[in-house]
Simulated assay, not measured.
Amino acid sequence: MKARGIFKQQYVLILVLCFCFTSRGNANPEYLPGKDSLSTSTQQQAITFIDSIKILTPSTFWPNIKPALFLQNIKINIHNPISIYPGNGTNFCGYGALTYLLLKDDPLGYAKLLLQLYKDGKAQFGNSVFNPSAAVKKEAGLMKFKGILDIHPAEQMWFLALADHYKGYINLFNRKYNSGDEDTRWASVNYAKFNGMVRSLLRYKVKANGSDLIRPHIGNLYQYISKRLATGMVVLYINNRIVHKKNHVQIKVSFPTHFVVAESVKEANGIITLVYWDYGGRTQMQLSPAFFKRIIFGITYCTKKQVDVN
Rank of each mutant, 00 (worst) to 15 (best):
1 M>T: 13
3 A>R: 07
9 Q>K: 14
10 Q>T: 10
10 Q>H: 10
12 V>I: 13
17 L>K: 14
17 L>D: 14
20 C>I: 15
21 F>V: 15
22 T>P: 00
25 G>W: 11
32 L>F: 14
32 L>E: 10
42 T>Y: 14
43 Q>C: 01
45 Q>D: 07
45 Q>E: 15
46 A>T: 03
48 T>E: 13
49 F>A: 02
59 S>L: 00
60 T>P: 03
61 F>E: 09
64 N>I: 07
64 N>T: 08
65 I>A: 04
84 I>V: 15
87 G>V: 01
89 G>C: 01
96 G>R: 03
98 L>F: 15
99 T>C: 00
99 T>Y: 00
103 L>V: 04
106 D>R: 01
107 P>F: 05
111 A>D: 09
113 L>W: 04
117 L>S: 00
119 K>S: 02
120 D>W: 03
130 F>V: 04
137 K>M: 15
147 G>F: 08
147 G>H: 10
149 L>I: 01
151 I>N: 11
155 E>T: 03
158 W>T: 06
161 A>M: 08
164 D>N: 13
180 G>M: 12
183 D>I: 00
184 T>R: 13
186 W>T: 05
188 S>T: 04
189 V>P: 00
195 N>H: 06
200 S>M: 03
203 R>W: 04
205 K>R: 14
207 K>P: 01
207 K>A: 10
208 A>W: 13
215 R>I: 02
217 H>C: 08
217 H>K: 15
227 K>Y: 14
231 T>E: 06
237 Y>T: 09
243 V>I: 15
245 K>C: 06
245 K>Y: 06
253 V>Y: 10
254 S>K: 04
256 P>A: 07
256 P>K: 02
257 T>L: 09
258 H>T: 08
261 V>C: 08
263 E>N: 11
266 K>W: 07
270 G>F: 09
277 W>R: 07
278 D>H: 14
282 R>G: 04
286 Q>A: 12
297 F>Y: 12
297 F>T: 01
299 I>Y: 10
305 K>N: 13
308 D>Q: 14
308 D>G: 11
